[in-house]
Design a protein around this nucleic acid. Structure first.
Lengths: 347, 347
DNA sequence: CCACTTAGGTCAGGTTCTGTCCTGAATGAG
DNA sequence: CTCATTCAGGACAGAACCTGACCTAAGTGG
């Protein structure tokens, strides 16, 4: 075994357990104790923080140091990392999307095929329910393929299904990936149309890098993010939700997380503001808060609430038909406003 | 620069870009082209899949191979990985909790202090709203400290706040971490009480490994998971939710994700079954489905729905007081049952 | 066909690595 | 306190390895 291979093994060993007796390490690496000590010294020279404790039950230990040593992962761990990063890249984390994709690209690029299959297999399991999942989920392999193509200036082909139109085949020079809201967009120069376009990543399938690298063009304006947002002229509808809730700001904040702004009005009421594409979310949040509230905008939210109320009323009324008979559980209303304000109990 | 350091640099370089011309690599590593070719050969001998393409614009490339090479990460990437793994370990992924913690332990153990601070700083941002966040969030550092102590048989001290009781200081021999539902438990031998105990990780603070390693004892029965579940004699309440929903199974499944069982009854109705500690969740799901439904069990869900219905009805009625006047938006109700069944529109 | 790029054999000279043997020093148990 | 255990590291000789220079072969794309 060569020296460099041995160093990698040593690093790997030091990462699996905390303490390693020198003897053990030496015999595992099939070298003498002296050489092991030299190897450790080499590692330290490289900047890795290898601690040692002497005496009985002493040993070597890899500590957090000034720099990050190479991570030597088990297969399953790599899969876990990939899955975690995919979730983060899908926008559930906030502010980390770009870096997550960057790291994901590294991991996926190095994953042997069987591991990649395992990762894909876990995609289904890992989906969170709808509004949190953020509509269509991005595919990790698709995303990393695009990221890599952008990074390395490789021409790209893929199938694209534009809004409502049929599927077209595209040949582009990828420029940059942009994360906006909880969606990913690819900004690229379309070779056939000879112009810059932005593509929604979740509408894009079977991407493949093809041919030799190209000389990158300059995006007019330079700002890929601005280019994407400029394309948003006619977003179908976007609701500006403003609701006055009879609960403390903390209670509401707890329910809405970081996806809305909550500002207290007084001790018992606060204002909830959200900008959303669909009304599902505010409805869920309001249902969860379990306190009385007043809708300022939009009117569509009134209709949505009304529909939910109708279903809930008839369901609450039990099996005796579906007539809307609200008020029969009046006391429950009084309960909602005051102390806890939440529906049900928490274990 | 020594050979092994150069190999690590080479690996690192090959991980940042896709294609590297041999010249470029050689000059960066400050060796001759011949030596570079030998280094590449060495890497290949080590099992890494280094591809090369010849001709104009050719170069070297690190491909996915039979085994996973060491990952060399940028600082920010490591943070992204840690954050992603923490989310996964918190139970939002399913089936990957153990492996995630394992990987997280590796990453966190090697992270220099500034990075760890960055990771902690991102904790707040990354929280998902309540029922999905799963109550109290686990702290990455706490979790990894425990995992490491278990792995390395190191005695542990921490403060523990049992259910309702005051905070006590514990000195234990950690045995294993168990993920159950969306909570983490530490199974350990309590040195003061001289008996085995299980601790909820989210009730545990300022853990610290202390003193020399101990000789691991054998857990009676051997099965840590069984030990934890055996402690669950008197869970306060656990609801068995059964609801008949007037919507297709797919619609309901879409809303509930993987946290409940949905079985179709006929083309327009299905049965939703969930086992939950609190009723928030089923209420949210039902609100989101936006279809009529009938509650089979439990009766408490009726009360909860009734409360929500009352709030929603008065909110829907607008600013003209809070009298419950359902039915004024009748058409919206009719809309709910049929085609889409979802509240609001989707962008 | 030509320019460019990786692939790899050979060889001499120098560098580095290894194991052995040795002395020191810190640690914790009895 | 004493002793066994364990890491730390200097010196040395011989072997192993690495490096750069030079050369030829072969694949790729214009």
């Amino acid at each position: 075994m060569s020296t460099s291979a041995r160093m990698l093994s040593l690093l790997s060993l030091l990462q699996t357990h905390r303490y390693w007796p020198g003897d053990e390490l030496a015999s595992r690496l099939e070298v003498s104790g002296r050489t092991l000590r030299r190897d450790i010294e080499r590692l330290r020279d490289l900047g890795y923080a290898v601690d040692a404790s002497r005496g009985v039950a002493g040993g070597y230990q890899l500590r957090a140091g000034g720099q990050l040593p190479p991570l030597l992962l088990e297969d399953e761990e790599a899969v876990a990392i990939a899955v975690g990063l995919r979730t983060a890249a899908a926008g559930s984390v906030g502010g980390l999307e770009e870096t997550s994709v960057q790291a994901l690209t590294k991991v996926v690029a190095l994953m042997p095929a069987p591991l990649r299959r395992r990762m894909d297999a876990l995609k289904a399991v890992t989906d969170t329910p709808s509004p949190w999942g953020g509509g269509p989920t991005v595919d990790a392999v698709v995303l990393t393929t695009l990221a890599q193509a952008c990074r390395d200036d490789e021409p790209l082909t893929f199938d694209y299904e534009a809004r409502g139109a049929e599927v077209t085949h595209r040949r582009v020079e990828p420029h940059r990936l942009v994360s906006l809201g909880r969606r990913w967009y690819l900004v690229a120069y379309d070779r056939d149309r000879q112009d810059w376009r932005s593509f929604r990543v979740d509408r894009l399938s079977s991407p493949a890098t093809t041919g030799p690298r190209f000389r990158p063009r300059e995006l007019p304006g330079g700002d890929a993010l601005a280019f994407v947002t400029a394309g948003f002229r006619q977003i179908p509808q976007r609701y500006d939700v403003r609701v006055r809730v009879s609960a403390t700001a903390d209670q509401v904040r707890w329910a809405v997380g970081r996806y809305g702004d909550v500002s207290p009005l007084d001790d018992h009421t606060c204002l909830l503001e959200m900008k959303v594409d669909s009304l599902e979310w505010p409805v869920m949040v309001l249902a969860q808060v379990g306190a009385p509230f007043e809708i300022e905008t939009p009117d569509e939210l009134r209709d949505a609430c009304s529909a939910v109320a109708a279903h809930f009323t008839s369901a609450a009324a039990g099996q005796q038909g579906r007539a809307a008979t609200v008020g029969s559980h009046g006391p429950a209303v009084a309960d909602g406003g005051g102390h806890g304000g939440r529906v049900g109990a928490r274990a």
